[in-house]
Write a protein that binds this DNA or RNA. Structure first.
Length: 418
DNA sequence: CTTCCACGGGAACACTGGGGTG
DNA sequence: CACCCCAGTGTTCCCGTGGAAG
């Protein structure tokens, strides 16, 4: 039987043995039975939540820690175990996990909770207090303890802390059920802007997860690698390198796992039998540039246009005064923005709005923008690109709406400004 | 002391996608 | 069906404010 070249390539790839035994354990969403170097935190959490199994209401908890310090893993793990033990002993204890980055408004949070307890709530349409009432009714229909995990709780507080206020005092209005809240945040200061009553109620107990150091990260990686690979797949220094690179970034275990997984995938694509240091290095830069491209690609059109303006200015400044510092002001960016907006027939937003979009680009790490006071010459943001302009330009030019602009010379825009 | 330019908070508005009611 | 209500999002409008150069 004859195969086409493509079919042969597919067959070859299929038959070549994967270096993975189990790829999924390298994902940061996988939660192993034992979490290395988190015994203290697990213990503390159990001690607080255990009262749920005696039918009491556990204290509300706030958990802090940078990304990849195991907050979510520890919390969900402990939660699941408590729920399981409760079920075995016939004690009604329910854990509800909510990620507030996805479910980031009062309505959505309450609707989600209500649905969890079996109510049918439409995605939109109802007044919020009706959803709240429905949720309460569903919850209170029998004796139970509900532990509500609010991951990334800081994302919720921006849009009004009314929900948190209502939830934190819900116990006084319940007859049968009991609720305790576990907030997870990577922002230590997020309670600053909270209503003091909410703050004190939410933070009855506080736990802080310290970052992992390189040795601890190595332990975590070794544990996962044992499950993920057969023996002899990883070069000796691969794990310590992943750990070291991730330790440099505030001890982020997610980053460490991503590095290990991506570098193994790269090795596999290379049809290499082993994962080597070079694969880790390549994974490192791949992760970085993928993140960048992804962030830029998913930007709203208006933000893309602002960014495009900045890229154009960045280039033209180079033309004008050689390789200068390439710093521009909001006013300059806005002038260019208006120009190219009309060129591609898009609504021109106000400068007030553009200021905000620039601030967002700054927070995404695509540009640098610092506010300065230039005395007689007023106040502005000093803006500069924080990534290779060509890279940004390349990603931006993939957007169909920006086609008419691609290839336009920066100096032509300068000229048209007159 | 004035002046300049934009920052950034806050209110108000338009619009969307979904109710429920007569 | 028409009609009004609601939450949420993105935006505009208005405006007080900063702080060094002139």
């Amino acid at each position: 039987m004859r195969n086409t070249p493509i079919a042969e390539a597919i067959n070859e790839l299929l038959e070549s043995k994967s270096i993975f035994k189990n790829r999924d354990v390298l994902r940061s969403t996988y939660i192993p039975d034992y979490l290395p170097h988190r015994d203290k935190e697990v213990d503390a959490l159990i001690k607080i939540l255990i009262v749920a199994l005696r039918g009491d209401t556990p204290s509300n908890i706030l958990i802090y820690g940078k990304t990849g310090t195991g907050k979510t893993a520890v919390t969900t793990h402990v939660g699941n175990e408590i729920e399981k033990v409760g079920a075995e002993r016939g004690i009604p204890c329910q854990i509800v996990y909510t990620n507030c980055e996805v479910i980031d408004t009062q309505y959505r949070l309450l609707a989600n909770l209500a649905r969890h307890f079996g109510k049918k709530v439409p995605m939109t349409g109802w007044p919020t207090d009706q959803v709240y009432t429905e949720f309460k009714k569903a919850l209170d229909c029998k004796e139970r303890v509900a532990i509500i995990l609010l991951d990334e709780i800081d994302k919720l507080t921006k849009k009004g802390d009314d929900v948190l206020y209502n939830l934190s005092r819900i116990n006084s209005t319940l007859e049968h059920a009991k609720v305790s809240l576990v907030g997870i945040s990577n922002d230590l200061k997020f309670t600053e802007f909270l209503d003091p009553r909410v703050r004190s109620s939410l933070g009855e107990e506080e736990l802080v997860f310290p970052p992992y150091n390189a040795d601890q990260l190595s332990d975590i990686l070794r544990q996962r690698a044992e499950m993920a690979f057969g023996s002899g797949i990883l070069d000796d220094n691969v794990i310590s390198l992943c750990a070291a690179l991730a330790a440099r970034e505030h001890g982020d275990a997610r980053k460490a796992l991503d590095l290990l997984r991506i570098s193994s995938e790269l090795a596999e694509r290379d049809r290499s039998k082993k994962v080597q240091e070079i694969h880790v290095r390549r994974a490192q830069s791949k992760i970085e540039s993928d993140r960048f491209a992804e962030v830029i690609r998913t930007l709203p059109t208006q933000s893309k246009l602002v960014l495009y303006s900045i890229v154009l200015l960045d280039r033209s400044q180079e033309l004008i005064r050689g390789s200068g510092k390439r710093i521009m002001s909001t006013g300059e960016v806005y002038r260019i923005y208006k120009r190219i907006c009309s060129m591609i027939d898009l609504d021109v937003l106000t400068q007030r709005r553009i200021t905000e979009l620039i601030t967002e680009l700054d927070m995404l790490g695509i540009v640098n923008a610092i506010v300065v006071n230039r005395g007689r010459y007023g106040m502005t943001k000093e803006i500069s690109l924080d990534a290779p302009p060509d890279h940004i330009h390349h990603v931006l030019s993939d957007d169909a709406r920006l086609y008419p602009l691609v290839g336009m010379r920066p100096d032509s825009i300068q000229m048209k400004l007159g």
